[in-house]
Amino acid sequence: MNMVKVYIKGQEDKNLSSFLRYYPARIKNIGFDAVFDRQIIYDFKDGHNHAEVAKCVAKMLVKKYGRKIGKVVFSCVPASSQERNEARNKYFSELVCRLSGAIDGFSHVRVRGERTAVHGTKIKKELRMKRLQEGMNIEVDADFFKNKIVCIWDDVVTTGSSFCAYSNQLEQVGAHVTDGIFLGKTSYKYVQQ
Rank of each mutant, 00 (worst) to 15 (best):
N2I: 12
K5C: 09
V6P: 04
I8N: 04
I8T: 09
K9I: 10
E12F: 04
E12W: 01
D13C: 04
K14H: 06
K14W: 01
S17E: 13
S18Q: 09
F19D: 05
Y23M: 13
Y23C: 09
A25D: 15
A25G: 14
R26W: 14
N29A: 15
I30C: 10
G31Q: 07
F32W: 10
F32Y: 11
A34E: 14
F36G: 06
F36D: 14
D37Q: 15
R38Y: 10
R38M: 14
I40C: 13
F44G: 09
K45L: 15
K45I: 14
G47V: 12
H48N: 15
N49H: 11
N49Q: 10
A51H: 13
V53C: 11
A54L: 07
K55C: 13
V57Q: 06
M60R: 12
L61P: 01
L61G: 05
K63I: 03
Y65G: 02
G70M: 02
G70S: 13
K71H: 11
F74Y: 14
C76S: 15
V77I: 14
V77P: 04
A79R: 02
S80V: 01
E83M: 11
E83R: 12
E83V: 12
E83A: 13
R84A: 13
A87G: 01
K90F: 12
Y91K: 13
Y91E: 10
Y91M: 08
F92N: 04
S93K: 05
S93C: 15
S93M: 08
E94P: 01
C97K: 03
L99K: 07
S100P: 11
S100W: 02
G101C: 06
A102F: 03
A102P: 07
F106R: 02
S107A: 12
S107H: 11
S107N: 14
H108G: 02
R110Y: 08
R110V: 05
R110T: 11
E114N: 14
T116W: 01
T116Y: 02
A117R: 14
H119G: 13
G120F: 10
G120W: 04
G120T: 12
G120I: 10
T121P: 02
I123A: 14
I123N: 12
I123V: 15
K125A: 15
K125D: 13
R128S: 14
R128C: 06
M129S: 11
M129I: 13
K130H: 09
L132P: 01
Q133M: 10
G135P: 02
M136H: 12
N137F: 03
N137D: 09
N137T: 10
I138Y: 01
I138W: 03
V140Q: 04
D143S: 10
F144K: 05
F144A: 04
I149E: 09
I149L: 07
I149C: 08
V150F: 00
V150W: 00
I152W: 00
W153V: 04
V156E: 04
V156Y: 02
V156S: 06
T158K: 06
T159K: 09
G160R: 06
S161F: 11
C164W: 03
A165K: 07
A165E: 07
S167R: 06
N168M: 06
Q169N: 07
L170A: 07
Q172K: 14
V177F: 00
V177D: 00
V177K: 00
T178G: 02
I181E: 00
I181D: 00
L183N: 00
K185A: 04
K185L: 05
K185R: 09
S187P: 00
Y188E: 08
K189W: 00
